[in-house]
């Protein structure tokens, strides 16, 4: 592995995507602001906006850094640099996840801040929020995996749609799990084994997705 080249490739994608990141962080802050207005309606609208901002930036990153690299024929420029295809794969996976984690982390921290302020979000929602935050990460990894392995816009858009539906289903399903639903309305955190299991499954899914991506990439023989 050529770590200095991987680092340069990641910084390159960071530079090229910097406006998208900035826009998503801005959108997320507006969403959190709306939540701060108080009231059931503002809470729902703000939450949906926040989710949308994060899903959108993940999708945009997958399309822009992976699908477009081939579509806009910059891939041959990148591959003319002193890197192997494994270096390229590592830079893409690591880079996109890390770049995505910048707005994700900022917005998760912002959300946590809303738990901390007086009269903010009821503390009982914390486990559910954590599960959903990681679910967004799972969703992004799915988009990255499909985008990198297929390098096709069509398949990536399909993955975006599947991920989007999955977030809603997971949200609905988790919210109705007895171990989660019980503590949701309360003013103190109720950390159940159900919540831990859910988190564990999510992390396992992320690991599996990334490993599968490396596996499929290592089997490719023609890169241009």
């Amino acid at each position: 592995m050529n770590y200095s080249m991987i680092r340069r490739l990641i910084l390159k994608d960071w530079y090229l995507q910097r406006w998208i990141i900035a826009a998503s962080v801005l959108g997320g802050i507006v969403a959190l602001g709306i939540v701060c207005l108080g009231g059931q309606a503002a809470f729902m609208v703000g939450l949906i906006l926040l989710l949308t901002a994060l899903i959108a930036v993940g999708a945009q990153l997958a399309i822009a850094t992976m699908v477009n690299e081939r579509k806009e024929q910059t891939l041959s420029f990148v591959m003319s640099l002193p890197i192997s295809y494994a270096d390229y794969t590592s830079a893409k996976i690591l880079g996109t996840v890390l770049i995505f984690m910048v707005p994700w982390m900022l917005l998760v921290l912002g959300t946590l801040a809303l738990f901390a302020v007086p009269h903010g979000i009821p503390h009982g929602l914390l486990p559910f929020t954590a599960i959903m935050a990681i679910e967004i990460l799972v969703n992004t990894c799915l988009m990255i995996a499909v985008a990198l392995v297929t390098e096709s816009q069509g398949w990536t858009v399909a993955a975006i749609m599947v991920g989007n539906i999955a977030i809603n289903l997971v949200g609905y399903y988790v919210a109705h799990l007895p171990g989660i639903a019980k503590g949701m309305g309360g003013s103190s955190v109720m950390w159940s084994s159900t919540a831990s299991t859910a988190l564990l499954i999510e992390f396992a899914t992320i690991a599996a997705l990334l490993c599968l991506t490396f596996f499929f990439q290592s089997r490719k023989r023609d890169f241009l």
Partner: peptide
């Protein structure tokens, strides 16, 4: 050994594109 070899190769192909949003200086 492509990573090592490409250190000493300058490659340009007709279908190669640079990043449209960035400048030549970048």
């Amino acid at each position: 050994d492509q990573a090592a070899a490409k250190f000493d190769i300058g490659f340009v192909s007709e279908d190669m594109r640079l990043y449209g949003a960035a400048t030549l200086r970048w």
